[in-house]
Design a protein around this nucleic acid. Structure first.
Lengths: 186, 186
DNA sequence: GTTATTATAACGACTGGTCTATATAACGTC
DNA sequence: GACGTTATATAGACCAGTCGTTATAATAAC
């Protein structure tokens, strides 16, 4: 399989997670990934929008998988989600507050600017919500509650990451974990 | 007082709310605001970082005020916050999903890139958290709970706005309102 | 006449995107 | 295996346009 293509996509994910869509230039992707610029338009003939859409989707899939794996360690959904969010807090901290929420910045910047990227973001977020939802279903929540809480958890975690990155502290995420557990335990 | 200066700041707020820091050019600010271009570096001699920092802080103050006013209509904090978030959902929808969360995109893009803008974002978010916190204090929550829930609500609302703008639907925010009320009512 | 404000043009650096040339791999045919 | 042929992939110079910024000149206000 193509190595350069994967490299370009992964680099795009990392850079856009840190600095968003408009803050990430193609030249920077090329430079950081080590891939030649000729390859960029060979693999992604439709340019930056295509690269971004694929990167967003890849991020979504990877994150959804991490959610599934993270939640599988504990059968109790409330406890599992609580611990999972604590892990995110550590991850955000250890990245120097550059990582966490690979979708947020891109989603906000492009919500009304690129139909194509927005569509990819929607798809990616649905993957995350579904990952939480399925854990809740397994734990006995009704279908409606599992779906709504999947949305609620996703929103709270996203917001917690924003605050943690802004404050340069994992504590907002830890607070989010604490009260989400309260809500899910009742 | 200077009209052009205020115009520039307000336009910067609006544009960055929609498309973030890197997605907003100074030329676009000048064009959109109608302010004379020469004035830009006259009023903001330290350039884009200065304009952005001031715009972020102005956004924070305006949003905190809107929170205070929005919550004052109902003495019950849980109900007041619920209704307030429903209003945000309407606002996001009626803006065509371009408005809501004036800080998010900028905060994420610059969390590790500009100390100055990051500092302004931190200050702005603290204003929002404090606005919620004070309503909770009035409603009888302990100081610690009011503080933590202020953070939690801010995170959930931010995340809800992201999802609503991405999905082009106010419903994620309405779901957030519903379960926040559950949490605050117990 | 001094200061505050606005106008204009230009700067170097960088943007996303295109182009041509070259190298490498893949594959059927002898 | 060896050959020529065709796709795939790498390499980077190059384009017009925009970026944030600066310098200088003109104008307005007091």
């Amino acid at each position: 399989m193509s190595n350069a293509r994967e490299h370009i996509l992964q680099t795009t994910c990392d850079l856009m997670e840190k600095q968003g869509y408009y803050g990430t230039g193609l030249n920077e992707i090329v430079k950081e990934s080590g891939a030649p610029k000729g390859s960029l338009y060979h693999y992604f003939p439709e340019g930056k929008e295509q690269i971004t859409s694929e990167a967003v989707l890849q991020s979504g899939k990877a994150t959804a998988e991490r959610i599934q794996n993270g939640l599988s360690s504990n059968s109790n959904a409330a406890k599992a989600i609580h611990d999972f969010i604590l892990n995110i807090a550590d991850h955000v901290e250890s990245s120097g507050f550059a990582a966490g929420s690979p979708l947020t910045a891109v989603a906000m910047e492009t919500a009304t600017k690129s139909e194509r990227i927005n569509s990819a973001c929607r798809e990616a977020y649905t993957l995350l919500e579904t990952a939480f939802k399925e854990k809740l279903l397994e734990s006995g929540f009704t279908k409606l509650k599992a779906e709504e809480l999947g949305t609620f958890i996703t929103a709270t975690v996203e917001g917690g990451i924003i605050l943690s990155r802004t404050y340069h502290s994992g504590n907002p995420l830890r607070t989010a974990a604490k009260y989400l557990k309260v809500l899910l335990s009742q």
